[in-house]
Nucleic acid binder design. Structure first.
Lengths: 208, 208
DNA sequence: CACTGTGAATAAATTCACAGCC
DNA sequence: GGCTGTGAATTTATTCACAGTG
């Protein structure tokens, strides 16, 4: 058991969890780090090292029990119970995200949706009634939600993020294509398809 | 000018380009690495080092010319002309992606869309007529497209990626939540919202 | 003088290599 | 014998610190 675990390790855990799901479907009971390496593309040493941060989960000479490792990783990530998440922005992207999260994640639930557009307020999206953004800070603070997805236009994003931080949110997945100052104590991950596409153009054009 | 440029550097270039766009809108003519650092969150040394891989673009004691640096970065990334990209998978996600790319990127154009569903073939999406996936390999090879976006169900993704590689595609943005073996000579970047969300749950729950 | 460009120093991440154990 | 867990070695990335220059 370690104190500080590097972010690169945390970001690989969901991949391991996905693999364990596949292995479970195949009724595999035991898996070695070599097999996990073959299937994920990560090196076996890296996988062993990542897992060892949290304890000794495997059996020397044998491997890792699929069900046990799955359970431990779920617990480590906080996916063993039900996690509530707020969604801010119910435009086209927000709507897609709401439906996607609700359908794909057994343990993550969109509990609140906020938008600044009065026409959207009161409508239902993915089983949740859209509220006005002005109610966000108080509502989120009261409900104790710690995770949020931001899908608002770029100019509004910083304000939304700051407000979410004041409401007690600890982690934010941001889709606004803008540079945001992460508030103190908040972990933020931005997803920007434009940037991903653009960096790939570099490789697409490179002659080899 | 360097031979090999690390991927971390390439992936930061689109962020610099975005900032330069903002600066252009503000009619800034010159920008220093310190100012760029303040606005992007990357350290100024890192920015200078990244840019210096490609040559000496700045003026000592002054800074970088916004328009010149923008032009150079566009050129380096390959965004100075028009880049064609193929989209495979015209389901819900594919449709959103097609519209998004066509509307957001001046220099990236979706030139071909493929799907395996006969009902979709012949329909128009974002100004492009959907073709059947069976025509993909030949069509892509003939057209010389080097960049592709894959938005097909997980079980089909590896086959699609391999086929694209044979057709000469060099860079792929993959949305299928599955482990893929990158074919020889192809740079692949996978976007998986589930994994992003799940790793954030870890931080949302952590007490600090 | 202010800011770039860059070697040198440091920190972080990965890989090696093997002891320890089932 | 085979595979985990882990220090040591290596590689990669970042930061420092300053010489060079308009």
């Amino acid at each position: 058991m370690e104190y500080y675990i590097p972010d690169v390790t945390i970001r690989r855990l969901p991949a391991y969890l996905r693999l364990l799901g596949e292995l479970e479907d195949e009724h595999a009971e035991i898996v070695s780090s070599a097999e996990m390496s073959r299937r994920t593309g990560f090196s076996s040493e890296q996988i062993r090292k990542d897992l060892a941060y949290f304890g000794a989960f495997g059996t020397r000479g044998v491997g890792y029990r699929v069900d046990f490792l799955q359970e431990r990783l779920r617990k480590i990530l906080g996916l063993d119970g039900l996690v509530a998440a707020a969604l801010v922005g119910a435009g086209k992207l927000g709507q897609s995200l709401a439906r996607y999260v609700q359908s794909q994640h057994r343990s993550i639930r969109i509990s609140h949706i906020f938008d600044i557009d009065e026409d959207l307020v009161g409508q239902t999206l993915a089983g949740v009634t859209i509220m006005h953004t002005r109610e966000m800070e108080e509502t989120v603070a009261e409900s104790g939600v710690r995770l949020a997805v931001v899908a608002v236009p770029a100019p509004e994003a910083q304000e939304v993020v700051d407000s979410l931080a004041r409401a007690g949110v600890r982690a934010i997945l941001n889709f606004a294509p803008v540079f945001l100052k992460p508030p103190q104590g908040v972990v933020m991950k931005s997803v920007d398809l434009s940037s991903e596409m653009r960096s790939l153009v570099y490789y697409a054009r490179k002659c080899r």
